[in-house]
């Protein structure tokens, strides 16, 4: 400062404002309506005997249901794995300067996004009608290994193929969006340091693209968990079909559908938490991330425990 004048200090802080708040009667009316509706729903869920909560509890941990749950998780994990790998590959292909490579990727995405998954699943299930024998060999030449399509493509394999290949098309667009969201200057910097295109993609571009890729991928995984129930139409005994098999015999339709829904919700909740931590991991360096809910609870417990000694 050039001048030596000091700014006169305030004598004291002015009083905090205490004003009469605006009345919001609409809010109160709305709250009352929500409350009434909520109570009505809970009451009917508890008192309506048709829910047959006892039966739900009976079947929740039934061996067949748990086996169905396992198949559902397997389907989700494998199909999503195929989808992600395929998606990364297709996205990189689509961004390739080679015209043929990028068109092949575009064509794949166009085709698999353009047809319903249910139809694709039925196609794979009936693949034997199209190609009774599947062989491995020289293109247009002799084949070395032959297999019967019906034994090779089991219902489970058909479900994996249908769900995974379809997912690849969607993941490709998600990954591509992530890659082009990264500043091109990052690739310039990496290449100026002597990294090859592959190293640049793997070490610099993809880790940054992850921040954009993860949230929609979480969505896709949750959606896949539920879409896998479509495999019930091609006799894969996943969660839904397992419960359908039971209620087709004992006609306790609603309780078994509730049991299935319960497990779907448990799985999606687990995925939701997983996504939160994954996003945090890939958000490093982006901003101050703060504590996780778990860390906050632990910190809270510690401070409570320490208080008496202070």
């Amino acid at each position: 400062m050039s001048s030596g004048e000091a700014i006169p200090e305030q004598a004291g802080r002015p009083e905090d404002i205490t004003a009469v708040p605006v009345r919001r009667p609409g809010r109160w009316v709305l709250a009352a309506i929500v409350l009434v509706v909520a109570v009505a729903i809970v009451r009917s869920v508890v008192t309506n005997p048709n829910f047959q909560w006892g039966v739900v509890g009976e079947y929740l941990f039934d061996g067949r249901i748990l086996h169905g749950l396992r198949v559902t998780i397997e389907l989700t994990v494998i199909a999503m794995g195929i989808g992600i790998l395929l998606g990364v590959l297709l996205a990189i292909m689509r961004l390739s300067p080679n015209w043929l490579v990028s068109s092949a990727s575009s064509f794949y995405i166009w085709f698999f996004r353009g047809t319903p998954v249910l139809v694709q699943l039925l196609f794979w299930y009936n693949i034997a009608a199209l190609y009774p024998k599947i062989g491995l060999g020289i293109p247009f030449g002799p084949a070395f290994i032959h297999a019967d399509a019906n034994t090779l493509i089991t219902p489970f394999a058909a479900a994996i193929l249908g769900l995974g290949l379809n997912e690849g098309a969607y993941m490709a667009e998600i990954v591509r969006a992530g890659i082009i969201s990264v500043d091109p200057g990052q690739a310039d910097a990496a290449q100026s340091l002597g990294m090859t295109r592959l190293q640049t993609m793997r070490r610099i571009v993809l880790p940054q693209a992850m921040r954009v890729i993860i949230p929609p991928t979480g969505n896709e995984t949750i959606s896949m968990l539920k879409t896998s129930s479509l495999a019930s139409v091609i006799v894969v005994t996943e969660l839904l079909y397992a419960s359908q098999l039971i209620y087709s015999v004992n006609f306790k339709t609603i309780p078994l559908l509730i049991a299935a829904s319960f497990w779907y919700i448990v799985c999606t909740s687990v995925l939701y938490v997983g996504q939160y931590y994954l996003e945090r991991y890939y958000g490093r360096g982006a901003r101050d991330r703060g504590a996780t809910p778990l860390q906050r609870i632990r910190a809270g417990l510690l401070s409570v425990r320490h208080q008496p000694s202070q």
Binding site: G185, L193, G285
Partner: peptide
């Protein structure tokens, strides 16, 4: 590509917008 990359590795470059790797 490998040869180009090797030669680039001997030339340092500093950019207007730094282009540090944020992660």
């Amino acid at each position: 590509e490998g040869e180009v990359a090797r030669k680039r590795s001997q030339i340092g470059m500093v950019f207007q917008h730094f282009n540090l790797f944020p992660h």
